[in-house]
Amino acid sequence: MSAPGTTTRPAEDGPAPVSTPARSTSEKARKGPVDWLTKRLGNGLVQVSLLLVGLIWITPLAGLFFSSMRDDKDNSASGWWTSLVRPDQLSFENYSTLLENSGITTAFWNTVMISVPTTVLVVVISALAGYAFAWLEFPGRDAIFLIVVGLLVVPIQIGLLPVAKLFGEIGLFGTIPGVVLFHVAYGLPFAVFLLRNYFAQIPREMLEAARMDGGSEWRIFVQLVLPLARPAIASLGIFQFLWVWNDMLVALLFADSSAQPLTVALQQEMRQFGSNISVLAPGAFLSLIVPLIVFFAFQKHFVQGVMAGSVK
Rank of each mutant, 00 (worst) to 15 (best):
G5T: 04
L226G: 00
L292A: 12
K165R: 14
K165T: 14
M307H: 02
Y198V: 10
L262R: 05
R23H: 04
A62F: 11
F193Q: 04
T25V: 13
E12R: 09
V303T: 12
E137T: 14
V244E: 05
W80K: 03
F145Y: 15
V225G: 11
V184G: 04
S257T: 13
A16V: 13
P231Y: 00
D256P: 06
V149K: 04
M270N: 02
N246E: 07
F92S: 03
I233P: 00
N197H: 10
L236K: 08
R86C: 03
T106R: 12
D74S: 10
V250I: 15
L252Y: 09
Q157E: 15
Q267L: 09
G44L: 08
S126M: 07
L280K: 09
K28Y: 12
L98Q: 01
F193Y: 14
A29E: 15
V154G: 07
V85E: 01
R219M: 05
F239C: 00
L195W: 05
I238T: 03
L45V: 15
I144S: 14
I170M: 08
N276Q: 14
Q299I: 09
N246C: 05
A11V: 15
I277V: 13
E208P: 00
P21Y: 01
L51R: 01
L236S: 03
L64I: 03
A16K: 12
L41C: 12
V85C: 00
F295K: 05
Q272T: 09
G215H: 09
P282D: 05
I289N: 05
P231S: 00
V311Q: 11
F92V: 04
F182L: 10
L99A: 07
S258D: 10
S83I: 03
E208C: 01
P227N: 03
N246R: 11
P139D: 08
P291F: 09
G171P: 06
T20M: 07
G215T: 11
A308S: 13
L84W: 06
F193G: 06
G42E: 08
F173H: 13
Y198S: 12
A191R: 02
V34L: 15
F145S: 10
V53R: 08
F167L: 03
L181F: 07
R230P: 00
H183Q: 08
I125T: 12
R23V: 15
F302G: 06
F193P: 10
N276S: 15
L121M: 13
N197K: 11
S68F: 05
T59E: 14
T263K: 06
E269L: 15
I56A: 15
D71L: 06
D74N: 09
P261H: 05
V192R: 07
V264N: 03
L266I: 04
T20I: 11
V149R: 05
A297T: 15
T25Y: 03
P282T: 06
Q240P: 00
G168R: 07
R211N: 01
P60E: 04
L55H: 04
K31E: 15
V123K: 00
I156L: 10
D213S: 09
T6S: 11
V153G: 12
L249R: 07
V184C: 02
M206G: 04
I220W: 00
G237N: 02
S287V: 06
L152A: 06
V163F: 12
H183I: 01
V48S: 04
A297Y: 13
F138H: 08
P4T: 04
